[in-house]
Design a protein around this nucleic acid. Structure first.
Lengths: 111, 111
DNA sequence: GTCTTATTTTAGTGTCGACTAAAGCAAGCG
DNA sequence: CGCTTGCTTTAGTCGACACTAAAATAAGAC
C-alpha cells in the first residue's frame, strides 16, 4: 500500500504495465536521477509488484499482476465489498442531489 | 488519493463508515491529541470524503460515499479495468504456480 | 456580559522519505 | 587483466507532514 501511494512509483508501474523495460529506459522516462528510479524499483521489488529478468548487464522490469492480488483484495476489503458498488452508490447519490437541485430551482422560480 | 494514503485517516473513515460520530468521540478512539484528529478531519473534509452535521457546539462526521465516487473510478482506471479482474488474474496465476509446484514435487519424488 | 464546552487553527518540533551525488558491484569486451 | 556499461547501494540534504501544545473561534448556559 505504501508502495503505490507514491505517484512516481505508480507512473513507473503504468510504464511497465504491458511491456517490460530496462531500468535505464525507465529512468530515461523521468527527469530524476538513475539512482532515484533504482530506489523506487527496489521498493516495488520488495513489495512484489514487479518481476525482473536479467540479460547481460541489463535488468528488465515488468509489472507483476499476480503480485497485485493481495493489494486488490486489500483495497476491496478496505472500500467495503466492491469498488463497483461504491461507484454505483456515488452515482445514485449524485442523481438524488441533482433531483434536489432541480426541485429547488423550480421552487425558487415559482412565485 | 493522498487523503487515504495515511493509515490514521483510513482508520477514521472506517470508524465513521456507517454511523456518524462527533469529533470528540472520534478523537477519543485514538491515542493522539484532539488537534491532530481535527487536522485529519480537515484533510478528509477538503477531499470531500466526509460530511459534517452541526448540532450546537458539536460536529458530527460521517463518511461520504458519494464523495468516494471519483476515488473509486480513479482506482479502477489506475488498476486497469476492474480490481475484480485483477484479483481473478492473481488467483489464476497462483493456481498456475501451485500446479508448477505440484509437478515439481511429483518429479522429485519419482526415481 | 462571563464561563464552559466542543472544535478549529496556529506555531513549532521531529520523523520519514524522495532525491542527488558518489561510491560500489556485476557482466561483457579489448 | 583493465575498461566500459548498466545498475545498485550508501551518505547526506531537504521538504513534506503527522504530531503536541497553546491560542483562537463558536455556541450554549448562567
Amino acid at each position: 500500500m505504501k508502495a503505490i501511494s507514491e505517484p512516481r512509483r505508480r507512473a513507473i508501474l503504468r510504464l511497465i504495465w504491458d511491456d517490460e523495460m530496462s531500468a535505464g529506459q525507465i529512468a530515461d522516462s523521468f527527469e530524476v536521477t538513475f539512482g532515484a528510479v533504482s530506489q523506487h524499483l527496489k521498493v516495488l521489488r520488495d513489495a512484489g509488484l514487479v518481476v525482473v529478468r536479467k540479460d547481460g548487464t541489463k535488468r528488465y522490469y515488468r509489472a507483476d499482476r499476480a503480485g497485485m492480488g493481495p493489494l486488490a483484495s486489500y483495497l476491496e476489503s478496505m472500500w467495503v465489498s466492491s469498488l463497483d458498488t461504491l461507484a454505483a452508490l456515488a452515482e445514485e447519490a449524485q442523481r438524488e442531489e441533482a433531483q434536489r437541485d432541480k426541485a429547488q430551482r423550480e421552487k425558487e422560480a415559482e412565485p
